[in-house]
């Protein structure tokens, strides 16, 4: 089945899974930052311009891990709310079937308490769902913006790598490539998530 034909609570779970993948890649970016620092130290004066960049790579990795972990939690919460909303919507449908089936029954009004309570619960879940969806949209956009610096960092890293001696050039270029490919992979997961979120916004 294609993702877009899933129910909304499944889409929310798929978003959580996408962000989980992004978090794992962001953690790898952290390792890249540590490696970059080690290579820069070994390269000595030849990579003097590269060293400050490793701090930026490290910072980017930290921010990305933090943001993607938070967004992952947010998506997991959204998935839980969506599943509860589905369960509550289902209960409302069943109650409405009872009102039809037992129309005119002496005790039919006694169902009102359960129906009203479930309706109240449905309203709370709906508003919570909207809030979570809106927050998720903002956070995804913010993370995507943060990742734009990765392209600049990769370019600067390449420039600095070309200044280093031949012995370290390849290692430093690898660092630049890793930063670029990690950022690109995370961006892909974010774009997929954003597409799924826009599906949810249309359904809501």
């Amino acid at each position: 089945m294609h993702k877009e034909t899933y129910s909304f609570f499944v889409i929310a779970a798929v978003i959580a899974a996408e962000l989980d993948k992004a978090t794992k890649i962001a953690k790898k970016l952290s390792i890249t930052a540590s490696n970059a620092r080690a290579v820069a130290l070994r390269a000595g004066e030849g990579a003097a311009g590269f060293r400050p960049l490793t701090d930026f790579i490290d910072k980017l990795a930290t921010v990305t891990v933090h943001s993607s972990t938070e967004i992952n939690t947010l998506a997991a919460d959204l998935s839980r709310t969506a599943a509860n909303k589905f369960r509550t919507d289902n209960a409302i449908n069943k109650f409405e079937a009872v009102y039809k089936r037992a129309e005119g029954s002496h005790f039919i009004d006694s169902l009102n308490f359960g129906y009203d309570r479930t309706k109240g619960c449905q309203y709370l879940l709906y508003t919570n769902y909207q809030k979570q969806l809106s927050k998720l949209t903002t956070e995804l956009e913010t993370l995507k913006d943060e990742l734009r610096t990765a392209v600049i960092l990769a370019t600067l890293s390449r420039v600095e790598a070309s200044q280093a001696g031949l012995l370290y050039q390849e290692s430093l270029n690898n660092v630049a490539n890793n930063v670029e490919s990690a950022a690109s992979a995370i961006k892909d997961h974010i774009s997929t998530s954003q597409h799924l979120v826009s599906n949810l916004q249309q359904e809501a």
Partner: peptide, 11 residues
């Protein structure tokens, strides 16, 4: 539920 509330109120 439709059958039971023909017999007794939900509470």
């Amino acid at each position: 539920l439709a059958n039971v509330i023909k017999l007794v109120p939900v509470e």
